[in-house]
């Protein structure tokens, strides 16, 4: 059997394992280009559970190739992207999604960067406003000025 299947037993031993192999997707591409691009996008967003830091597009694990085959069949059968993704999460959980959906437990994840940026900008603007009110030519520390503007 494939080398990657051996990886599973390695994982279960709790050993360090590098998933060093990778996959060439040897399936015939879809004739329909839009179907092919949906297929590629989807496989690049789903995480392989065997080699847990690879997408199922790139993983050489045999499970990944099974899942690619499954995905192709479903897309060919006319399933929508959402249906395919639901098929995966129903079986393997949200863990397979490299791009977590926007839901209550990921609110902070998705909004966090924007909040961080806002926070940063507010702080920066406040500092700049405070400093711009000070006399620009004074180079040395002047505690009085500072205290006044702090209270302002």
């Amino acid at each position: 059997m494939s080398h990657m299947l051996k990886a599973i037993s390695f994982l279960l031993f709790g050993f360090l394992f590098f998933c060093s192999s990778w996959a060439v997707d040897d399936a015939q591409p879809f004739a329909d280009l839009s179907l092919q691009s949906r297929y590629e996008t989807l496989t690049h967003q789903l995480r392989c559970l065997v080699c847990q830091n690879e997408t199922i597009a790139d993983s050489g694990a045999s499970l990944a190739s099974d899942l690619r085959r499954e995905l192709r069949e479903q897309l060919a059968a006319g399933k929508s992207d959402d249906e395919v993704v639901k098929f995966m999460t129903d079986r393997y959980g949200a863990f397979v999604l490299y791009k977590p959906p926007f839901e209550p437990r990921t609110w902070l994840l998705w909004l966090g960067p924007v909040l961080l940026l806002l926070l940063g900008v507010v702080v920066a603007v406040r500092v700049i406003r405070k400093r711009s009110l000070m006399a620009i030519d004074i180079l040395d520390d002047s505690d009085e000025d500072r205290k006044q503007s702090d209270q302002a």
């Binding site: 967003q45 959980g93 490299y98």
Partner: peptide, 17 residues
């Protein structure tokens, strides 16, 4: 539960700053 955060997240969000 268990979730994953991968390239599709970072490559979008990283552009913000």
């Amino acid at each position: 539960g268990k979730i994953s955060v991968g390239p599709p997240y970072f490559s979008v969000v990283f552009l913000i700053p």
